[in-house]
């Protein structure tokens, strides 16, 4: 991942979730160590993006169960699946712009798209997990 997307992701995760921080999976770290080909590296990225997408999606039912969140359940504006979709829609369009712009600037990195996507899906997984942390233990330990 580029420094930019890592730091953008981490800063936003911190903004959204207080003490929550998210890390790359062990599988991804191992994969990046062992794969040397472009195709192999691309697969590492692909799997990691899927890992965080799945993680975020799996956590949605947990968020719905939160007592404080439950009161929004009947309002379609706060449908969590729609929220997830809106985020994905943004991610898709933004990352296409990002890649196009970087290519215009002369970057030829093969992983620009995956790199951009990974930064954002990590953010989303971080926010969702942060909601659960705050919702189940809103004040934490003093």
């Amino acid at each position: 991942m580029t420094y930019k997307s890592i730091f953008l992701g981490m800063a936003v995760i911190s903004l959204a979730t207080s003490a929550w921080a998210i890390q790359n999976s062990q599988e991804y770290l191992q994969c990046m160590k062992t794969e040397s080909s472009d195709a192999g590296t691309a697969r590492c990225y692909e799997n990691e993006v899927k890992y965080f997408r799945d993680m975020a999606k799996e956590k949605l039912p947990e968020v719905k169960k939160l007592e404080k969140v439950a009161r929004f359940a009947l309002n379609p504006a706060y449908d969590l699946e729609k929220q997830y979709q809106a985020f994905n829609n943004f991610l898709e369009s933004y990352c296409k712009y990002y890649v196009k712009r970087k290519q215009n600037q002369g970057y030829s990195d093969k992983y620009l798209q995956a790199d951009c996507e990974l930064g954002f899906v990590q953010m989303y997984a971080g926010y969702t997990s942060g909601l659960i942390v705050k919702g189940t233990d809103p004040c934490g330990e003093e």
Binding site: L66, V69, F72, Y78, A86, K134, G135, P138
Partner: peptide, 12 residues
């Protein structure tokens, strides 16, 4: 708008 509504609700 959707996220911040949830987030504000769970804020301590």
């Amino acid at each position: 708008n959707s996220f911040c509504t949830y987030s504000a609700a769970t804020e301590c």
